[in-house]
Design a protein around this nucleic acid. Sequence first.
DNA 1: TTGAAAGCGCTACCAC
DNA 2: GTGGTAGCGCTTTCAA
Lengths: 370, 370
Amino acid sequence: MLIASRTGVRIGRAASEAVTDVSGIAEVARLAGVSKSTASRALGGTGYVSEETRQRVHQAAASIGYVPSTSAVSLATGRTQNIGVVMPYVNRWFFAEVLEGIQQVLLAQGLDLTLYDAKPGTEGRNRIFEDFLARKRFDGLIAVGLEPDHQELDRLVAIGRPIVSVVGSSNVTTVVEIDDDHVARRATEHLIALGHRDIAFIGGGLSTHWAQVDRRRLDGYLNAMKTAGLSDHVRHIYSDVTLPGGYASAVDALGEARGRPTAIVATCDEVAIGAIIAARRLGVQVPSDLSVIGIDDHEFADMFALTTLRQTPREQGRVAVQLLLEHLDDPTQPPKTVRMTSQLVVRNSTAALDPRASAVAIDGRRRGGL
Amino acid sequence: MLIASRTGVRIGRAASEAVTDVSGIAEVARLAGVSKSTASRALGGTGYVSEETRQRVHQAAASIGYVPSTSAVSLATGRTQNIGVVMPYVNRWFFAEVLEGIQQVLLAQGLDLTLYDAKPGTEGRNRIFEDFLARKRFDGLIAVGLEPDHQELDRLVAIGRPIVSVVGSSNVTTVVEIDDDHVARRATEHLIALGHRDIAFIGGGLSTHWAQVDRRRLDGYLNAMKTAGLSDHVRHIYSDVTLPGGYASAVDALGEARGRPTAIVATCDEVAIGAIIAARRLGVQVPSDLSVIGIDDHEFADMFALTTLRQTPREQGRVAVQLLLEHLDDPTQPPKTVRMTSQLVVRNSTAALDPRASAVAIDGRRRGGL
DNA sequence: TTGAAAGCGCTACCAC
DNA sequence: GTGGTAGCGCTTTCAA
């Protein structure tokens, strides 16, 4: 096709451009026998147009397959009909799910989605904050798990467009999130209720990005342990917040039977699943030797029979768009925080503590303590 | 805003727009003591401007933090400085990797990325092809594993913008891909060289989307088997092309020792890893009882010691952008096909066939044959 | 209810 | 080298 155009492009080009040229709103107006303004009104649904003209204009538009030029519309109205989405990763379950939720409602609304992949510590991230966002090629912004630093936050505010954060813990923008502290606490309490005492927390620490979320979940774990009088049993296994990260850290931490926790609270399902795979590899039976609980309800959770606290990032994405659109309609609305609920899904990775295992664990602890 | 504007916004509007107005190129020009045209030339880098004026203009621009209006620029130049990316999934390793590769070079080039998530069989996909793409909010398009049907392909061509496909098998657009047939053949040959005869292929079939890629890989497997005189040993285990899909199908297929293949070629690493997890679950030792080879070199491959044929989707994404930009520079270029190489990565999921296992397998086959 | 005309902010052509 | 000026394609007053 392109090859063909090689020989006689001049003509092809000219012709094709002529076709495009001619199919503007002016042509629609001409065909319908009205003025540009009337055509615009008829098409846009704004202002008074007689039903008859409206139909005539619409037919004319349809007949030439009229599609308004987005840049012309944007220039004239100040609206881009486009939403920007900034996130640090797109290759992790949570982020991909949120993105799909966002995309889904944006498509239904006829709005475009411009993606900014702001991976922490990259040159690309700098450029996004320095150059890309300033272009304001969007009517509003959704920031997913961004955790911007001070400077970045300033930039964000400076663009002067409505922003909704998903997992943002921001007091300046509207936020959609779950109560991380509370969720981690419930996860820990589930284990405590099963009789576990030597419960470790795995996650956060190696990676810098999830710091805030991880910190809150760690706090939830610590609070639950403290409340149960188990502060002495607290243990934090540092791990990258990825499946292989959880695997690697768990392989290290679960190697010897002595001192091994009887249960693990993972900062998210990916880490939990990594830990389960590690346990299997080490011959540690889940859940009889080791209980594991996660947070997410990841798409792999079912396959690993993982007990977890379900969150629905896709829904969070949908809600984020909704809030953003509301704000676009009425910019006077103050920022709000929407807390999504989360539900315990019990599968088969957690079980009541085996008395013998307990004895070993307690023994291990004693030895460690002495 | 809209509500407000009805009552008395006139003022608010005017004021706020005035502020925006003032930081346009006209203001830059005024500050630099030159005309708008000169300012434009100085900023755009096009046309003759004395070094001195250029500096003065740039300073003026910097002093007020001038950022050109993208819609105005687009309208005037016909260029959007934006690239559209259409893909059916964003939550699968391959697609996420390609997307990151694309984003990476786009960011470096100062180009925006508009994402269209065209999940097969959804209303959203229809809207993308019917409405969104027709808006041409982009200078070019990258289609990743899209496998459009006839009608969709027509739409694609109709938008009249350059297109590059990643995994597209298209004769109308430029394509970046690996040689799926060849890669699957090499995977199969690796197993044959290790002495395996009962080699099954797992993948494709349940899902419709990957049909073409899967078909090509299946063909590669079939060809290798045929060449080795093993056509009688051919077996296709149908599986969804996901990790849980591979797991579920493998659990079904590997249940009984009799008739169990001694080796598996998976259509991709996700399926391969699913199969490995299933094998472990069933007490089938990998690689002593079962060899598994994949295609991808997925981020989990190392953790499962998976032997695989590496492909680098991120690089494919980068190359796709490069090709697109070249085409944008010189639209007369005919479409081409770029084949990325792929390399065998031997880890520990494949091993030479154990004579005893072979006997059992052959026995099983015999029984099946009678 | 409709049409004329004035921009939206920028580029690019054409004189100077 | 530089400065007018005419659009890019659409929306939106303002009059009619």
